[in-house]
Amino acid sequence: MNYLLQPYNYDLSDPASIPNLFLDHLYLVGITMLISLIIALPLGILVARRPRLYLLVITIADLLYTVPALALIAILITITGLSLATAIIPLVIYTQLVLIRNTATAINGIDPLLLEVGKAMGMNPRQVLLRVALPQALPTIIAGVRIATVTTIGIAALAYLAGQSGLGDLIFKNIATTDFDAVVAGGILIALLAVVADLLLLAVQTVLNRGRTSVSLA
């Protein structure tokens, strides 16, 4: 606990201070989620209502998800070296399974009856999309984003191995010198960030899911 309580670990001018590592970590997670969504949303929409294509894409995403992060980063280092790409590529790959699956599930879950009801009351296509389709699909998509974000926060610790700074630095730099205080501080901060992100996105999900069954906490 000492490490977390020392004021000098919060010195903003030190790039390795907790606030700076925290921001670096957020940056990694943010850029990962951005790229992930740009890939997964269109892909999820594409495979929705196409069972064969869905199975193919999901099987590939599942196998990629299965490859351990450490192994993937290790293999990438031999190709792309110590770079941001080496850190980001595995993170993006791991988000795809849940994001594609939830997006497809969300699109499949839009009730065609309600689309028609919207149309029948005189909604134009834009109103049908904004007032009927999106409100139905968003909660499931956000549920996927929530899981993907929390997962990414955890794995982003490994970005250190690709030479990218983040909260993982606290763990990997200090484990060699057996400075467990710093190591545990890193673990706690990552867990804390994950839990906070989880709760924030849960709140978003709950708001979006109004009127329907409550969402589970786990």
Partner: peptide, 9 residues
């Protein structure tokens, strides 16, 4: 919900 690496250390 707790990252594996955090748990491990």
């Amino acid at each position: 919900a707790i990252p594996v690496i955090a748990f491990l250390v």
